[in-house]
């Protein structure tokens, strides 16, 4: 049984985020892998050691502040779980939150969880639009498509990115990198949401979650025609 944790679904429900949960769960279902979803809201307890896949999304400013306060209390247990291979997908605000700090326009440093060695600074303009990145999944080059909408610009230093920007802005609109990866933690600005269309990434997350529990991780093939067609629409539009 894989246990999926949706953190703060009450607060962080922008941009179809729950599509990521739906995709992970359905692709398990279709393969007969038992899976259950626990929703954890502010103040509710959760043992990250027991979780197989943790999803952390983004929200509007006020809601993000509420979740940040709650998440800071869980910092140590989350860090330990991540070091031990917890599979995490963090999007937008969730991505920024895992880093060292967020530098506001006014020069104020809002501390993050400090689990990943990256930081974010407020940008001049919002980076909005469809985006295509090129990533490598199990050694195979893959185009990942989504939609980004963020004003924070993130710099990941020496960390591994999720992919290279083919078209769009990515982490900061400057270094052509998108997202970040650390152990089994995947960060990205792509919503759209990310997992339903980009099925090879979803399958990688499922595989990693199974491996971490020492379970059989060879996944049966699914029909991905619609997924590929949906990515294809954006790729065709942006990449000529």
């Amino acid at each position: 049984m894989l246990k999926v944790c949706h953190l703060y679904p009450d607060l962080l429900n922008l941009y179809g985020d729950r599509g990521n949960i739906i995709a992970f769960v359905q692709r398990c279902h279709w393969r007969g892998i038992p899976v259950e979803v626990v929703e954890v809201n502010v103040g509710e307890s959760v043992d990250f050691e027991e979780i197989d896949f943790l999803f952390l999304g983004g929200g509007s400013d006020r809601e993000q502040n509420l979740m940040a306060a709650d998440l800071l209390l869980r910092k140590e247990s989350l860090r330990q779980a991540i070091e031990k291979g917890l599979v995490v997908l963090a999007i937008c605000g969730g991505y920024q939150m895992l880093g060292q700090y967020y530098l506001t326009h006014e020069g104020q440093k809002i501390p993050g969880l400090g689990i990943l060695d990256l930081y974010t600074r407020a940008g001049e303009k919002r980076l909005i639009g469809n985006i295509v990145i090129e990533s490598s999944i199990n050694g195979v080059p893959v185009k990942i498509a989504g939609f980004e909408n963020h004003s924070g610009q993130t710099f990941i230093g020496d960390m591994e990115p999720l992919g290279k920007v083919v078209s769009g802005f990515g982490n900061n609109g400057q270094d052509h990198l998108e997202g970040a990866r650390y152990k089994n933690v995947f960060c990205s600005y792509l919503h759209g949401p990310l997992l339903p269309k980009n099925s090879s990434l979803t399958d990688l997350l499922i595989q990693l979650a199974l491996q971490r529990r020492g379970l059989e991780s060879t996944l049966s093939q699914l029909n991905n025609d619609l997924e590929e067609a949906a990515v294809g629409v954006i790729v065709e539009r942006l990449v000529k």
Partner: peptide, 9 residues
């Protein structure tokens, strides 16, 4: 709206 992610909501 160029962003259609709301379909997932």
């Amino acid at each position: 709206g160029k962003d259609i992610s709301w379909l997932w909501d």
